[in-house]
């Protein structure tokens, strides 16, 4: 007999995981949808965000705050995450403006190889700065233990995970607002639909592209920062998020933000249920959903980017 409160907890776990996936996949999907670039280095940007956050939060905890109160700790983590993600913006600017732009016109194999090269370089840059060993974070994130747990349906649930859900929801709303309601967002979407027409009506396509890539890098870094505290930062951490966000993109539809959102939550919840009910299925679950979507609706659940966010 499956108890109801268990269902609730595992679903909530899945939603939290889904929001982390959405944060990663959103960056990848807007870059794919608008720039037509499959950024294989996206996972490493995620890892970079995590590493930078670990150092930043460590410094913040040491210098300014004593995170003995739960709220103080959460504020420090949020501030550290936002700062770390901000560090990734110039990285994104550089990658797009200097390296990617010269090869848009060329065979697409070159951009794949280029982003693969960036993956390798960023990975080793991380290894150079933080060393080959995983960065342990017990000291930095000891404040997480000071947080009171939240009680839901008779079961306890970590407050930090709840925070991820709240922040993830806020970012989701913000992203949709940006693309649906703001002028810049509409310009970006117009560029995605028709590059030439956008140029003709006076849109600076180059600048739009750089902006989008920097945005993608920002969200990758932010996802890494938010996903970090319960775990450790290690060199291989970029691979799984990259592949899982591929799965999310395939499920949702190429370059569709709406699709990425639905896909991420679907993958998140189903993976956590699988982990709970059939642990052997944990790895295969996202891919199983992907295979079904590919067979039934090859273009993904939602069409492509542009007409709707």
């Amino acid at each position: 007999m499956v108890a109801l409160e268990n269902v609730a907890i595992h679903t909530l776990n899945g939603v939290q995981y889904g929001f982390v996936l959405f944060l990663i996949a959103s960056g990848l999907t807007i870059i794919l949808g608008i720039l037509d670039v499959l950024n294989l280095a996206h996972g490493e940007l995620f890892a970079l965000g995590a590493y930078v956050t670990s150092s930043l939060v460590g410094a913040l905890v040491g210098a300014a705050f004593t995170p003995d109160s739960g709220l103080g700790f959460l504020l420090v983590v949020l501030a550290g995450s936002a700062l770390a993600a901000a560090v990734l913006v110039p990285v994104g600017l550089f990658l797009e403006a200097v390296l990617l732009r010269p090869i848009y016109e060329r065979d697409e194999v070159y951009q794949l190889v280029l982003t693969f090269a960036l993956l390798l370089v960023i990975k080793d840059a991380i290894k150079y700065v933080w060393g080959p060993k995983p960065v342990r974070l017990e000291g930095v994130y000891s404040g997480i233990n000071a947080l009171a747990t939240v009680s839901i349906a008779g079961r306890t649930f970590p407050t930090y995970k709840l925070l991820i859900i709240v922040v993830g929801a806020a970012v989701t709303v913000g992203l949709f607002y940006f693309f649906e309601r703001t002028k810049t967002g509409r310009i970006v979407r117009a560029t995605a639909i028709d590059r030439e027409m956008a140029t003709a009506i006076g849109v600076d396509v180059d600048r739009t592209f750089t902006l989008v890539f920097a945005m993608g890098a920002f969200f990758a870094g932010f996802a890494g920062a938010m996903a970090l505290p319960p775990t450790q930062a290690h060199l291989e951490m970029g691979a799984d998020p990259l592949v899982l966000s591929f799965v999310v993109i395939v499920i949702g539809g190429l370059g569709s933000l709406r699709g990425a959102f639905v896909g991420a939550l679907l993958v998140g919840v189903l993976t956590r249920w699988a982990t709970w009910l059939y642990p052997a299925m944990e790895l295969a679950a996202p891919f199983a959903i992907m295979a079904v979507v590919l067979l039934v609706k090859p273009e993904g659940l939602f069409g492509s980017w542009g007409e709707r966010a």
């Binding site: 190889v113 280029l114 090269a117 370089v121 080793d124 290894k127």
Partner: peptide, 19 residues
């Protein structure tokens, strides 16, 4: 120790210099 970065740089050279 940074063999991956070396590969990456060679790859960049190939992409931009010797496609």
């Amino acid at each position: 120790d940074y063999f991956d970065a070396l590969t990456g740089v060679v790859l960049l050279l190939v992409v931009f210099g010797f496609p």
